[in-house]
Structures are given as C-alpha cells and as structure tokens.
Write a protein that binds this DNA or RNA. Structure first.
Length: 433
RNA sequence: UGGGGCGUGGUCCAAUUGGUAGGACACCGCACUGUUAAUGCGGAUGGUGGAGGUUCGAGUCCUCCCGCCCCAGCCA
C-alpha cells in the first residue's frame, strides 16, 4: 500500500493509502468519528463509523491531540470535508500516544503571543505557521533561482568578522579562541564587493546579526539577507535587478503556494499587481509629497516609520525612493555626479506598512574619496585595509543591495509580525527555544 | 536607549474599584451517524510573577525587582 502525503491525496481518489502523521483534532458525533490528520503537507479529515469499523473506532477513541499515528484508508471526494477530500479510515496505529494527564499545550483556540513564542517548537505545527514556513521556503528558493538565472554567483560572506562592516555600533561580540574577539556579521556587503571584483556578478545569502535594542514588529536580532553585488554596475542596474527579484519571489509564491496563502487568508489580488516597473520617488519628491500630506519632515532628515507608511500607502506595489542626502547614508555610498550632496542609493518600501525591504546603491570606487569618507565618519582605516585594496587594484564602478528576507516574507504572507516568518526568531528578549 | 502598557489555574479572560478569587477552554465520563476550533449534560485538577510596605482586611493601593508587549530611535 502506497505511503501518500496529504498534499497528494487528490491523485489517489478511490485508492487505499497509508498516511503517516499526527492527530490534529478529533471531532465526534455519535458513533461517527472525524479525526483530522496532519502530516506536514496539509490537514486531511478522516471518517470512522463504529458500526462499519469497530477496531479503528476503538483505536481512535480517546486518542489525544498531536499523538503520532499511522493510518490507512480509502480516499473519497466529499464536499462536506474541509479541502474536498476525506479518508475513510480502515486502520489506525498510534506511534506515540500523548498521555491524557499531560496534554499537548497548544489548543485550537486563541493564545497570547508570549505563550506561543515560549512554545515556538510546537507552535510551528499549527497550519498557519506551517503555511508561512512553506512560503518562506518557496520565496527563498525562487530568489536563488532568479539570481542564478541572472548569472549571479553565490559567494557567501563569513559570519565571524574581525570588525564592523558599517561602523562599530551594535555588534555581537564573541570570544574567538585564545584571546581574540570576533563579531557576528551585520552584513556581507563588504565581502561581496570583493567577490564581485573576482567573479563579476555575485550575491551572498545568510544570517545577519544586529545587537540593536529594537523592539518593533519589524525587527529581529538575527535575520536573513540576500545581498547582490555587481561590478561595472550602477544604481539603475540594481533597481532593475531588485524589481525583477521581488517580482519573481512574489509571483512564485502566488503560483506555487496557493493553498498556503489561502490558509493565511492573504488577499492575493494585492500581490498579483506586483510587476515592474515599481513607482519611483526621488528623495526630493518624497519630501514634497510628505509635505502635501501634512508631514513636516525637513529636507535632510531621514524617514521614520510614519514617513515610510505615508510613502508606501500611495501605491499597491513596492515603492522605490532614491537619491538620499549623502549625510544620512552610509560612508561607502557613491555621490551623484550631478548633485554631490545626494547619494546614488535607493530603498524599496513594501506596501501595507511592512517597511523597508531593500536598501542599496552604487558604492564609492575612488580610493581617495573612500578614505576621505572613512575620516568623515570617524572610522579607523586599519580594519578597512583590505576593503580599500579593492579601490587600489582594478577598481570599477559597482553597486548592490540587501534584501531582508523576513520582512519580504511578512509582506507576502500578510504576517502580523516578522517573528512568525522565521522558524526560531531571535529578538531582544527572546533566546528560547 | 526613551515613552506607554500588561503579568490571576495548563490556556484565554472576569472579579461591582480595598471586603469569601470565578467562568470558559483544555483533560476525563455520558449522549448524539456528517462533524467543521462540533454541541449538550456531568466530573476531577489547579492560580493572583517575586520581595517588602500601608491596612482589621490587598488580585486591587505604595516601593523595588523580574518577565513580556506596543510605539519611537536604529535599521533590513
């Protein structure tokens, strides 16, 4: 008898199959039992009649929520069953029965955030969380697929770094054997600038760590970032790449995860409109727009959450904001030759208040200018010696960006909080489980 | 790092503003042959985050501590 996953049962209508999973819920009605089985690919309702199958009825009666079970049964199409199919159970074998005295803690009821996060190792079994994690898998797979198709080579950056990438603030410090210190990376960007000079078009994909005391629904201390970098490229090239990448991730999720998005109650119509080109605003225009909306942000100030929300709520697609004042951007940003007070950098803001999902731009390629900027930002030159070498030996114009995976997935899935979009979130106050 | 808020059975909440700490869910039993977080009836278990203080009396008021949430800042 074939072992079948719940995702595949539609292909086995009328056949007797074997299912291996867990008892998600058990509803009963007289001499009928309606067990809900889950196996990681979905939930399937079974039906057992005491009259027709007393052994299976007996085996299932009293079986507790989340007990592991192997069941056999015949797949039937039935409009009364959730999902349209149900399993007419022929046999049930408990793999491990959870004792009644110590029941599974997570009910099919509402729980508080703290309790759920404390039990994250179990919470991920619920259909909603499992759906988000499947969309995450699909979005990441699509992202890597897209980058590969575009000729970008995966060159991962180290997690241990000798010093800060973008300055010395808010790094996690760890003991590095003997008497040295290392820091967990907060960005792979500097390293992909080096590999871009070696391989042309590259990207890295991995975790980034920020020891910032951010406590909002958009922040984690450990998050995943995809960072492309290309030699002989400028800001426009990167905007086009980011538009393509985001579009591909979103459209792949829609195409490959329709059931998951349905479980999540995501309004897919709001994602289907995501196609290039995305609406654009220069920083100058953005300030003007904010003023028209009654927001008093002065030219030269950076945007906060309120400003991002105003700008992104104008459109149903992600919004690109470009050419920020140099003074509020990182030291490595290439100035606009037309207006040196502006940097050739851009952000992409996700719709529906999910915030900034991309930040990037063209990097400074001039050795002298880069040294000057390090001085202006009060950064020591020695830790950047290798980085400066990239400008001494065959320097070329180059550009890149970083895409925050969790924020992107939060937007695609419509998750309330970014912490639902990663299996085991790390936040300022949570290091468990 | 600022500002605001919340901690009550395993879970989700209530307690007439200082006067006997309760309900629902979960668990167990019974009933019900199409349930959709089933429903109805019954049962057992079990709690005020911690330490002080005020008071005849504190879940409620005060001080400190601990844990967490939200907003801002920082950022992706």
């Amino acid at each position: 008898m074939a072992v079948v996953t719940i995702a595949e049962v539609a292909n086995h209508e009328g056949q007797e199959i074997r299912l291996r999973g867990w008892l998600y819920n058990l509803r009963e009605s007289g001499k009928l039992l309606f067990p809900q089985f889950r196996d990681g690919t979905g939930v399937l309702q079974g039906v057992v009649s005491q009259k027709e199958n007393p052994e299976a009825f007996q085996a299932l009666t009293g079986l507790t929520q989340e007990s592991s079970v192997e069941v056999t049964g015949v797949v039937r199409a039935d409009a009364r069953a959730p999902g349209g199919y149900e399993l007419q159970v022929t046999g049930v074998a408990a793999v491990q029965k959870i004792p009644e005295g110590d029941p599974y803690p997570i009910q099919l009821k509402e729980h508080g955030v703290d309790f759920l996060l404390e039990n994250r190792h179990l919470w991920i079994r619920t259909p909603r969380q499992a759906a988000i994690l499947r969309v995450r898998d699909e979005a990441i797979f699509a992202a890597r697929e897209f980058m590969h198709q575009q000729g970008y080579v995966l060159t991962d950056a180290p997690v241990f770094t000798p010093s800060a990438c973008e300055g010395t603030t808010n790094l996690f410090e760890v003991d590095y054997l003997d008497d040295r210190k290392a820091y967990l990376t907060q960005s792979g960007q500097l390293y992909v600038e080096a590999t871009a000079a070696a391989l042309g078009k590259v990207y890295c994909f991995g975790p980034a760590f920020r020891a910032e005391r951010s406590k909002t629904r958009r922040h984690l201390t450990e998050f995943w970032m995809l960072e492309p970098e290309a030699a002989y490229a400028g800001m426009e090239d990167m905007i086009a790449l980011a538009e393509g990448l985001i579009t591909y991730m979103v459209q792949s999720a829609i195409a490959r995860c329709p059931q998951q998005l349905a479980v999540l109650g995501r309004d897919v119509a709001r994602l289907e409109t995501v196609r290039p080109p995305f609406p654009r605003l220069s920083y100058d225009d953005a300030i003007e727009l904010l003023h028209r909306q009654g927001n008093a942000t002065a030219w030269g100030e950076d945007f906060g959450g309120d400003e991002e929300t105003i700008l992104s709520s104008q459109h149903d697609r992600p919004v690109i904001v470009h050419r920020f004042p140099t003074a509020i951007k990182a030291f490595y940003m290439q100035p606009d030759p037309q207006r040196p007070e502006l940097a050739l950098g851009f952000d992409i803001l996700a719709p529906e208040g999910y915030g900034e999902i991309v930040g990037g731009g063209e990097r400074i390629s001039s050795y002298d200018l880069l040294r000057e900027r390090l001085r202006q930002h009060d950064l020591p030159e020695e830790p950047f010696r290798w980085y400066l070498d990239l400008r001494r030996y065959g320097s070329v114009p180059h550009a890149g960006f970083g895409l925050g995976i969790e924020r992107t997935i939060a937007w695609i899935t419509g998750a309330e909080h970014i912490r639902e979009t990663i299996p085991f979130p790390r936040t300022i106050y949570r290091l468990w489980p």
